[in-house]
């Protein structure tokens, strides 16, 4: 049975959802060990067990939260060389990618990024990866004795394991060498907007260049309020400086999966749609009947968004009364 390690990432002392998603998936293939590093680690062990981790390795050393990548990569690399897990799975997050890149070089192993699915066929690892903006699904395996896999958030559902036993919790007693303490985090600043986040929202309204002007994003925010929606954007408008990068959906932005995604004035370039095409429902509003987004919208409306959005806001408010 493969011995599978998952780096359970902490954010403000809480395990990130992507780590629970990964554990929910890989527990089907072997014994899962979760590694949690940084302040608050120990308190998360129980939760990791509920999702199917059999063993949890913890360290409360605050160094992990004060320096980028190197302390975590050193720890994982040192332990992996001793214990030789078959797989190490990490979420495609800012921190996860940094750790994975160094770990890859430390272990000299194979690395499969952007995994959409993980399977074992006849004992052989089979990872499905969308290539070329998700037009093609490629099966990849690795001959390495320890393989490294990166998984995008929302690739798997996070589901508690029924009847999970309490995990074995082990304290790590590794000394972090000074040379891992180089890229120092001076401060972390939250730029949180109001309302639900793109990751959690049931409804997302995204705007593109078809909105014509930065100030027309106000129309989307006005519609977002009664729908309790998050507002996203295409890269074209992020690059134009209309809205911050944290709102970008797509290949180089966020992957989202809401109940409904409303694309307003977005043409539907493949690099955008790769980030939203797994939404349950897609509504598109575009003046151009030939816009590619209409090829896969469940409801496509050919028309001027600057007229339709305010009318829709009124209509929703009216129906809510």
């Amino acid at each position: 049975m493969p011995n599978i390690w998952v780096l359970a990432e902490l954010h403000n002392g809480k395990v990130q959802k992507v780590s629970l998603e990964i554990i929910s998936k890989v527990r089907n293939f072997g014994d899962v060990t979760a590694i949690v590093l940084g302040a608050g680690a120990e308190s998360q062990a129980g939760l990791l067990g509920e999702y199917g981790a059999k063993k949890v390795l913890v360290s409360e050393d605050p160094t992990y939260s004060h320096y980028l990548a190197e302390p975590a990569a050193f720890t994982l690399g040192t332990l992996a060389e001793q214990q030789k897990p078959s797989l190490i799975v990490i979420g495609t997050t800012y921190d996860g990618r940094d750790v994975a890149a160094r770990l890859n070089a430390m272990l000299g192993c194979g690395v499969i990024t952007d995994a959409a699915d993980i399977n074992y066929e006849g004992g052989t690892l089979k990872v499905t990866v969308p290539w070329y903006s998700a037009t093609t699904l490629v099966d990849v395996t690795s001959p390495s004795s320890t393989a490294l896999i990166l998984v995008r958030p929302k690739s798997f559902a996070a589901e508690k394991l029924e009847g999970a036993a309490a995990p074995m919790v082990e304290q790590l007693s590794l000394t972090l060498p000074d040379k891992t303490k180089r890229a120092r985090i001076v401060e972390t600043v939250d730029e949180k907007s109001e309302g639900p986040s793109l990751e959690d929202a049931n409804v997302i309204i995204s705007g593109g260049r078809g909105l014509k002007d930065a100030k027309n994003f106000d129309l989307l925010h006005e519609l977002a309020t009664p729908l309790n929606a998050a507002v996203g954007a295409s890269r074209a408008v992020v690059d134009s400086g209309w809205v911050p990068y944290s709102m970008q959906v797509g290949q180089t932005g966020k992957t989202v999966k809401p109940t409904v995604y409303i694309a307003v004035g977005i043409s539907g370039a493949i690099q955008h749609t790769v980030g939203m095409k797994n939404s349950k429902n897609i509504i598109a509003i575009n003046t151009d009947a030939d816009a590619p987004i209409f090829k896969f919208a469940d409801l496509g409306v050919i028309g001027d968004s600057l007229k339709i959005i305010p009318a829709l806001t009124e209509e929703i408010k009216r129906r809510k009364h």
Partner: peptide, 29 residues
């Protein structure tokens, strides 16, 4: 240290209902 063992085109979503706004788009949506 990675080997591609196979590939297939990804399944694409299909178009649904397309309507032209004749003043009632808000109601349709």
């Amino acid at each position: 240290k990675e080997r591609v063992t196979g590939w297939k085109p990804a399944e694409q979503r299909k178009a649904g209902q397309i309507v032209k706004d004749d003043g009632n788009a808000a109601t349709v949506i």
